[in-house]
Design a protein around this nucleic acid. Structure first.
Lengths: 358, 358
DNA sequence: CCGGTTTAGCAAACCGGTTTAGTGAAGCTA
DNA sequence: TAGCTTCACTAAACCGGTTTGCTAAACCGG
């Protein structure tokens, strides 16, 4: 019975014209009854609503969005497939911040990934009032398409573009602090585990997060009179598995560092797991420093020394900037926020082992 | 300069009529050029596309959605605010599965939470082709609204409704296996840490996940000739903090269990942390069993004994069912899937300590 | 060179709402 | 009781596309 009923309703959804006819009024009146009841007589308004209810009428959201030029939705642009993104705890924390501000302002969230290869393509099919792009390199062709579409956008963790507002953190200073910490403990042989840029290799953004952090590491290392050679920088996807693979690769190549600088907590955790698999201990044999300071970092054993960045707040601020751009009350010049990072020392770092075997 | 340019474009976005006029053709021709170029002469089609490009024209997605009656978007309905949901690793894994299937079918993802209190309200404002609802109790009034709106929907982890397809797991069997494991190890005093239903308290769903798992635990305990008293069941939000608080509360009330059955991995982790704070060890002093088997479970120390459920696959299957409902090729009767659970024994469980103090 | 079929393109209707400009009746002032 | 407002409501235009039905020209075989 229910089944049949729902089939009938799926067949033909009630429209505003149906309600108008059933109630013996104009479409305008029905629209008023829903949107500005004070423009109607009390009796008429409530009768219309009643009729509408009995017909199961709901204003069609798409039609409404068309006339109001507003979808009450913001898009989150990600450089990778969503199925990869959602397994990344960093992204979860970021989304938390995004969701918090979006929700309290009555906006829904739409996640947009490079559908069938092209982000621009995906964006142009999508019904949003504006979007937050995370980790998009600024020279991406997609960015230009968005610009031409006239869609408000805020960039997070991208090299800043003058005409879009942006939110980033002081990656370089954070990275430098992490490296200085290891150096101060006495480490001299340091391996950097970097996050692989998701973009099709080749065009690499010199202002991307990867390179900014690398500059910080390198600055500290060179200030100590040492050198960071290219073979001491390995990369992989920003995941636990990626961290394991990166460490195992380097170890297999014969590298024997005493300290590891990982560009994400997830990779640091992966490295720690790989280290344990080699029957070595953290921080006894190797020290590990992460980046992000996710919940994860305190959770594991030993708790991870890492560079804290306000991931959640990045999401919040990005949406705030976006909402003000959408409402048109944005400043003359787009705002560029740079948030702080700081080193959190926990138990995954210590002095290097006394040189026994080498 | 760029700034001014983008302002101008934001002022007035090119429409299909603009392109038609500039190219000296009809709106129809422009539409054809984009959607079925073979209905136009090759020269005309490419000229139109060129003109469109120079004007920065993109078909307006909302207008397109209106005529095509399709938004290429599916909604994910959550019972709690998104800012809470995204911090839950269970949800991340579930979303992964959802995203995987949605993306490969060309659908975008829209997350819908109880905006301003009402989920139904949020749903009716949202432009989606169908939705996946997770953890919604079936007697929710929202469900009826969705039914009346004629929107295809799939229920996950809800008590199944006959006229909506659904995906669930065998919670009861999984819970029973977990309890039997503790009992077999010799535990006699067991504390259950349950997930608090997110709904406004009062109306509790006897077929909800919480109660299904509780039945499983209870069945095993009673089969062993013991009893699970009400004060040995504590609840809290399904998070690490919730697990800590739940254990601390019970301990503070004087309970001294030797085994803990937690209804989520996150709560189990929280309990383990609280136990360590009390200077006790897992599994030496207390054994802990989780539920879900997230990545988390293998990551922590000691690795968590837990009930595995195919979280990610739940997301995948739910979207598959939804897509077939959307395309109208759904079966006469909605399909109800029940996936398997199984106990994974790791290192967080062991025999109870020999009775020393008591 | 003729009737029939393709081809290329257009005008108008349509999707389902919102909004503007206006109309007739009732209420109020003088 | 004329003239001005206010009230309750409506017809028609509009948002920006797609789709249907049609026409005129080009093509074709005989």
């Amino acid at each position: 019975m229910l089944g049949r009923k729902s089939v009938e309703q799926a067949t033909r959804r009630a429209t505003i014209a149906d309600v108008a006819e059933a109630a013996g009024v104009s479409k305008t009146a029905v629209s008023f009854a829903f949107n500005s009841p004070d423009r109607l007589g009390t009796a008429t308004a409530s009768r219309i609503l009643e009729v509408a209810g009995s017909l199961g009428y709901r204003p069609h959201p798409v039609a409404r969005a068309l006339t109001q030029r507003r979808t009450a939705t913001i898009g989150v642009l990600t450089p990778q497939a969503l199925s990869i993104i959602f397994s990344n705890p960093f992204f979860g924390a970021f989304s938390e911040g995004v969701a918090l501000v979006a929700e309290e302002s009555g906006y829904g969230l739409h996640f947009i990934s490079p559908l069938h290869g092209s982000l621009a393509n995906a964006v142009s099919r999508t019904t949003v009032d504006g979007c937050v792009a995370i980790g998009l390199s600024a020279d991406h062709p997609e960015v230009d398409q968005v610009r031409r579409a006239g869609l408000p956008m805020v960039l997070v963790d991208s090299s800043a573009l003058p005409d879009f507002p942006s939110v980033e953190v002081d990656d370089e200073a954070g990275a430098r602090a992490a490296a200085e910490h290891l150096l101060a403990l006495g480490h001299r042989d340091i391996l950097v585990i970097g996050v692989e840029p998701p973009h099709p290799a080749g065009r690499e953004d010199p202002e991307g997060v990867m390179n900014r952090r690398l500059r910080g590491y390198r600055a500290a290392i060179e200030a100590a009179g040492l050198e960071l050679s290219d073979d001491h920088v390995v990369v992989g996807p920003a995941s636990i598995a990626g961290g394991m693979a990166a460490f195992e690769g380097a170890w297999g190549d014969g590298l024997r560092p005493t300290g590891i600088l990982a560009m994400s907590d997830a990779m640091a955790v992966g490295a720690m797991r790989a280290i344990r698999d080699q029957r070595m201990s953290v921080p006894g044999d190797l020290s590990v420093v992460g980046f992000d300071d996710l919940d994860l970092a305190q959770l594991i054993d030993p708790p991870l020394t890492t560079v804290h960045q306000p991931v959640r707040r990045k999401g919040e601020e990005a949406v705030r900037l976006l909402l003000s751009a959408i409402s048109g009350r944005s400043a003359e010049r787009p705002e560029h926020m740079r948030l702080e990072t700081r080193l959190i020392v926990r138990a995954s770092t210590g002095p290097p082992p006394v040189p026994a075997r080498r």
